[in-house]
Write a protein that binds this DNA or RNA. Sequence first.
DNA 1: CTGTTAGCGCGTTCAC
DNA 2: GTGAACGCGCTAACAG
Lengths: 350, 350
Amino acid sequence: MATARKPNGQSSGQASGTSSAGATIYSVAERAGVSIATVSRVLQGAGTVSTTTTQKVLDAVEQLNYVPLGAARSLAVRHHEAHGLILPELSGPYYAELLIGFESRAAELGQSVTLMLTEGKADIARAVRQLATHVDAIAVLGSAAMPPAVARALHGQKPVVIIAGAPQEGIESVRAENARSAEQLTEHVLAHGRTRLLFVGDPDGAPDISERHAGFVAAHRARDLEPAEPLRVAFREGTGEAVAERILAGELEADGLVCANDELALAIMSHLQDAGRDVPGEIAVVGWDDVMAARYVRPGLTTVRQPVHDLGVLAAERLHQRVSGGRPLLEPQVLPTALVIRGSCGCAAP
Amino acid sequence: MATARKPNGQSSGQASGTSSAGATIYSVAERAGVSIATVSRVLQGAGTVSTTTTQKVLDAVEQLNYVPLGAARSLAVRHHEAHGLILPELSGPYYAELLIGFESRAAELGQSVTLMLTEGKADIARAVRQLATHVDAIAVLGSAAMPPAVARALHGQKPVVIIAGAPQEGIESVRAENARSAEQLTEHVLAHGRTRLLFVGDPDGAPDISERHAGFVAAHRARDLEPAEPLRVAFREGTGEAVAERILAGELEADGLVCANDELALAIMSHLQDAGRDVPGEIAVVGWDDVMAARYVRPGLTTVRQPVHDLGVLAAERLHQRVSGGRPLLEPQVLPTALVIRGSCGCAAP
DNA sequence: CTGTTAGCGCGTTCAC
DNA sequence: GTGAACGCGCTAACAG
C-alpha cells in the first residue's frame, strides 16, 4: 500500500512525528497512506473523497504542519491568483482608502494583492516588470505611476486598469467624477458673494486636477465671470505655506480659494489663521477629498468627498472579470462624488 | 539548428511577429535560435554568454514581449521572493507609514510585498494560511491580527516577525519604545500643574497601550501621586465624542487627558472646544502618533512621534535576514520615540 | 472513490 | 560559450 514518490529527499526517516520544515504533498500523502491526488482533492475540495480518507489526510496535514507551495499550484493551474496594485505613494487617506477597497474586494474574490509604491523607486519600469511576473493583472493609480511604454507592454500580456489616470489607448479605466462636482463647489463659493476666486493646484499635474479646474472655469463662465489663471503649485505641505505667505504679502489677491486637495487647503487655511486672517470672513477656502482633519479644524473645511473605497473595489472587480475572461470595458467607469458643506466656504456650519 | 521543445502549443505558426499572449522561455529560445538555458542565462545575468547571442535573446524577448512566469521561477529556485505583511486595518497615518517603510525596504532587497488586511475578514486563519502559501516570510502588526495558534503554526514553517505586538514564545518582534515616552509625556503635563489626569484608552487592548499606561502610572508614582483608573475606551471616532460628553456632563472630572492616540485626542478636544471649553486652559489634552491633523488644529496637539517608518524598514530587514538563513533575534528590537510639544498641553506654542 | 501519469515554465547541473 | 535533460511541488485528466 505504500505510495511511491517521485521527488527527492526527506522520505520516511525524517526525525520525529511532528513538524517538518518543508512538508510537501508527497510527505502528506505518504503519512496519510494515500496518493498525492487524494491529498490534492481534499485540500482543493474537488472530487469526492470518503470521510475516513479525508480525515486521515487532514490529520497528516495537521501533524506535518503542511503549507502548500503556492508557486507549484500557480504553475499547475496557470495563474497566480494575485492582483498587483501600483500606487505612486501612500500619504494621506486617499491612497489608503483605495487600497482598503481594493484589498477587501480582491480577498473576497480569492485574490491576494501585491502592492508596489513607485515613490523612491529608481527604476520603475523594472519594478513593474518584476511585479507583472507574479500577478495575473495590474491596477495602476494615476498614469504617472506607470510609464506609457510599460503600460503598453503590459497591456496585451496582462489585464491592466488605470485608476484616476489619463486614459490610454484601449486600456480600461475607472475614476471619480470631477468636473461637475468642481463646478458645483465653485458655484457654491461664488454664491456666497465671492468674486475673486483662485484655483490652487496644477491642472497639468494630473487628469483629476485638470477636470477640477475645468469645473472651476465652467462655474465662472455660467456667471459670465472670467476665471483667474490657476495657481500652479505642487502637492507638498511647504507649498501650502508658501501660497499663504504670498496672500499675506498682498502678492496674491483673492476672497476665495478653491484648492485641488485638502492638504493644500488645510495648510493654507491654518497659516492664514495664524496670521490673524478671518476664514471664511476675509477669504473662503475649500478643498477636495474630505480628509479626517477637514472635520476637526475650525471652521470645518468644505470639500468634496470621493468614493475612493468604491474605486478600489471597482478596480479589483474589473481585474477579476478580465482575468476570468471578461472583455475590457471601452468606456471609463465613472463614480459619483459628493459636496461636503462645512464652514470654510462661508456657510454657517461649524 | 532548430531547438527542440518539450512543452505544448504555440510553436512556430503563431500569427505575426510581435506579441504573443503567453510567451514562454521556449518561444523566446526558439525565436532567438538558442536553447532555453541560454535565455535563462542572459535573463538572470548568470554564466557568460557571447555579446551577439545575448543581443539575439534580448531582441526575441522584446519582440515577443516576454514576461517570465514568476511561479515557474519560484518553483525552480524554491522561494517566492515575496514577503507578507498582515495589518489589522489601514486607517490613519500609522499603518500607512509602516507599510511604506516595509515596502520600500523589501523592494530594495528584491522582495515584493503581499498585503493582507484582517479587518472585515471572516476567517482570518484561513486568509493567513493562504498568504503563507505565496510568501517566504510574514510580518504581523499587533498580535491580535494573527491568532496565536496560527502564529505558532507558521512559526517554524516560515520566518515570522511581530510588529508592535505582544511577544510570543520564540517569535521575533520589533516595536517602538512606549513606557518611558509615556512617562515623560505624563510628567510634562503634570509639570504644567495639572493634578487630575485621566488616561484615555484601554491598556488591555494592545501591548502598546499597556506600556503607555504603565508610563502614565510611573510618572504619577514619581511624584507620589495616585493615578486614576484608566478610561477604557476603544479607538473609534464615536468614542472620542462620548468621552467629551461625559466630561461636559461633569460625569468625569479631569484637568488633563492623556489619550492613547491622536484620533481620540483630536475628537475629544474639538468636541470640548465646540462646547466652549478652553483647551488647554481648563483641560489639557495630549495624544500619541503625531498624525497630520495634530499640527493643524489649534492649539496644536502635543503628542509623541513614533518611528513608524523605521519599524517597517526593520521588519522587512529582519524577514530578509531570516529568509537568507540568519538566526532569529532573541531580544525584541526597540526603536526610540520622541515627544512633540505643541500647545494642547499648556505650553505657549501655537 | 482512489491511484498513475503527464505536464505547468523555469533554473541548473553536466557534457560538449 | 552553449545545449540536453532533469526536477521543483502541484493539478488534472484518465484509468481502474
